[in-house]
Nucleic acid binder design. Structure first.
Length: 273
DNA sequence: AGGTGCGCCTGGAGGC
DNA sequence: TGCCTCCAGGCGCACC
């Protein structure tokens, strides 16, 4: 799925389409996303005025004037598509659609690993999807906070960085890129990182995420910005998906791929230690 | 506590 | 309008 930069980009695109506007019509074509849509989903959203939009971890939060919050997770292939004018004909993967006075939003998700929920905004802190999330890498990550997360941990540093209870927003791509920049191998035991390595990693994570947001995210297969534009950060990947290629940085290492917990990890064996 | 494997779905790529 | 296998950005679960 979309990792933090893609979710952030999607949230901003959605904000441009609905912030301050009333949802004049809401349709749920399919209720069975990863989890069923909540009861009376469309009727509860219809007529709501979007007050502010936010991102927490890989969740988009739309808060409405009346105290209702709409939570959206894009799963692996979820996309939000925004447009001006009337709602176009919906396709087989268009599961939720809404209109405002100026345009429309379509939630499209081929694999249906995404999901949505509605809840009272004042209960946000207790929401089961939100209450156990770790720290936000763009605002709360520094040497001290990262050290506290990693120290004494026997799992791999990759597993630790993917664990949304520790730190949120990272997925397979951005973990690979952040570890490359920090010169740390994904298989390293999390608690074994030196102070210098931890310091580099605390810097490289927000750095790579911020750069990716600026580029509109990374388009792999399904992802596009809500406007339909691609995300361009893929061109900046140093190791992800580059198995067998020469390392950008050291020139002599060849990017390797190993399987960790059934998922591909990419790194330069020469300059990541 | 941590790992591993699997399932949830569909579609694209590549081998044959 | 081929068929088959593998693979994919996430995440939760059962099981060890």
């Amino acid at each position: 799925m979309p990792e933090l930069p893609e979710v952030e980009t999607t949230m901003r695109g959605l904000a441009g389409a609905i912030k301050g506007r009333k949802l004049t019509a809401v349709r749920a074509q399919r209720m069975d996303l990863r989890f069923p849509l909540p009861a009376a989903f469309a009727s509860r959203l219809q007529g709501q005025v979007a007050n502010n939009l936010d991102r927490r971890a890989k969740y988009i939060l739309v808060r409405f004037e009346g105290g209702l919050t709409w939570l959206i997770h894009l799963g692996m292939s979820g996309r939000l598509i925004v447009g001006k004018g009337p709602l176009p004909q919906l396709g087989k993967h268009d599961h939720v659609a809404l209109e405002t006075d100026i345009g429309y939003v379509i939630y499209q998700d081929a694999r249906r690993f995404g999901f949505m929920d509605l809840f009272r905004t004042d209960k946000e802190a207790e929401h089961p999807r939100l209450k156990d999330l770790g720290l936000e890498p763009l605002t709360d990550l520094n040497f001290k906070s990262l050290s506290a997360l990693l120290s004494g941990r026997s799992s791999s540093v990759k597993a630790a960085l993917l664990d949304q209870k520790l730190i949120v927003g990272l997925g397979n791509i951005y973990v690979a890129e952040a570890l490359f920049r920090a010169k740390v191998r994904p298989e390293r035991e999390a608690g074994s990182l030196t102070r210098a390595e931890t310091r580099r990693l605390a810097a490289s994570i927000p750095e790579v995420l911020a750069e990716a947001i600026k580029a509109g995210g990374s388009s792999l297969k399904d992802y596009r910005q809500p406007s339909g534009e691609l995300g361009y950060f893929k061109a900046s990947w140093a190791v992800y998906g580059r198995e067998g290629e020469d390392c950008y940085r050291c020139g002599s290492g060849v990017v390797a791929r190993v399987i960790q917990s059934g998922r591909s990890s990419f790194y330069c064996p020469k300059c990541q230690r």
